[in-house]
């Protein structure tokens, strides 16, 4: 029981505690990476993709469903032009989402995608999507928002349906700004 040894242990333990505090925060990006690989939470990590078109797999089809939600009953209309489509993997498809801002305020919205089953998320490749940016609709403005995507032919055989859900959130800081301007 010597003082230098105690000091050494003390330093080590404090260092570990600080390190674990950092680890708590490191879990945030780690979780994203983990989810991206495993599809743990069904979040869509695909960014704008320039992956060249692969061959179309004519032997099977995958049903893609489009679902939309308006967070907290945002006074917009937001609907896909079709509810679902049967596609061959590798086949490129464009679907439009219609959005109407029914309020008399300019509103910023952000469409947050979620895909089910989660591990199917990585096989839905978007080449162009309105969800890559924040959307602004002026009061009573209407817009058609395109999504171009294809299903990666490597998609596991047990996935026959992919559900793509968009939840449209009002982007709040900007909304506040819009309200203040109105006053």
């Amino acid at each position: 029981m010597t003082a230098p040894k105690i000091k050494k242990h003390l330093r080590l333990l404090i260092f570990s505690a600080v390190g674990m505090f950092g680890f708590g925060f490191a879990l945030v990006p780690l979780y994203d990476v983990f989810c991206d690989i495993t599809g743990l939470n069904g979040k869509d990590y695909s960014r704008e993709s320039s992956v060249p078109m692969t061959t179309v797999d004519e032997s099977r089809t995958v049903k893609v469903e489009f679902v939309t939600y308006l967070n907290k009953q945002l006074p917009w209309q937001f609907k896909p032009e079709i509810n679902s489509i049967e596609l061959h993997p590798g086949e490129r498809y464009q679907v439009s989402f219609m959005a109407v801002n029914q309020s008399d305020q300019d509103t910023f919205g952000r469409a947050v995608p979620s895909i089910s089953p989660g591990y199917g998320a990585q096989y839905l490749v978007k080449t162009e999507c309105f969800c890559f940016q924040e959307q602004m609709l002026a009061a009573n403005e209407e817009a058609t928002m395109p999504l171009i995507f294809y299903i990666d032919p490597n998609i596991p055989a047990d996935i026959s349906t992919l559900t793509l859900a968009y939840t449209l959130f009002k982007n709040e800081p900007n909304a506040d700004l819009a309200m203040n301007q109105k006053k």
């Binding site: 333990l13 505690a17 674990m20 505090f21 680890f23 708590g24 925060f25 879990l27 945030v28």
Partner: peptide, 14 residues
């Protein structure tokens, strides 16, 4: 305790 209490501190901080 040393391994997990800091993680809790991180969680409440977030």
């Amino acid at each position: 305790l040393i391994a997990v209490m800091p993680v809790l501190a991180g969680a409440v901080t977030m």
